[in-house]
Amino acid sequence: MATALEKTKCWIRSRKGQQVLICVGFTVIPLFLLFLFTYLPFGEMVKFSFYKMKYSTPVDRRTFVGLKNYFDVFHRKDCFGALTLSLYYCVGAIIQLVLALYLATVLSFKVKGGNLFKGLMFFPYLISGIAIGFIFKFFYTRGFVLDTILTTFGLSIEQLPYWLKDQSVNNWSLVATSVWRYFGQNMVLFIGAIMSVDSELYEAAQLDGANKFQQFWHIILPSIKTIVTLNVILSITGSLSAFEQPFVITGGANGTGTYFVVMNEIAHVSQKVGLASAMAVVLLLIIFGCTILQKLFFKYIFRDAESEDESYAAKKARIKAEKAKAKALRAEKKATTSVMQEGV
């Protein structure tokens, strides 16, 4: 017994023992935390989505309703219909990415006061979402900041819409807020990626007579494709689950209730926890689907860059040439055999 204990002690102190302990420790603890705070609650939520229950309903009084909640998600116009609002945010996401990519490219070359600009444009991302909500509520208020600025440019106040009241503009107002907040973050990620491009490539391209746009298109974009893909996926996912801006600025009222805001309302006001959970599960599936589609899409448009040495066209040409070669070889073989047969 004592020797066994001694042995384990010894083993623990040994290099190998330490290695094993650290490996186990570093995997088990994070995995446990991940399970406890992510997968366990998620599993519970999936379970809730099959029940009719309120938060305060004790466990034994929850009623199982099967797939009824999922049926409701697709059936009710305020649930699934709210996803159409995500289109506004998707458009916003595209504008945001193009803007970020443009500014990142400009700023990654030598620009006077470049760091100051980077800082200024990244700053909105650091402000808390709630604060941004309040800032923009007053920004858009009739006769306040935005209206004042626009009237100094000669527009009269009668020509301007009510930014949050008019239902044909209010979603764009919210999307603009979202773009303002997040493009700086995208930009910084892009700048980071562009920095890692070998500067000799630019020199070589310059010698070959390539202009800035060609440099961007043929050198920068293929080099940072991973970051571009990542940013697009994050932005589209973000626009499907847009919440902060509508929730803080308009409270989801007046036709600005996105899927998340509606979900929150159903869960916390009407206390239909089951239905809200089902909505969450459906949104998760939609986001999965979108992500997979985007992956496939990027595989398609970046296929040139996918093969390291040759372009897609070159690859096609090579394969064609190989086939032709093989054909020719076979023909030759045939010819020789027939000749041989003839000879026989």
Binding site: A253, V269, S270
Partner: peptide, 19 residues
Amino acid sequence: LNAESELNINNGGNTKVQE
């Protein structure tokens, strides 16, 4: 009834009055 109808009378049903 409040939860089922989602009118939430006297129970946080702000949205319907906003509408």
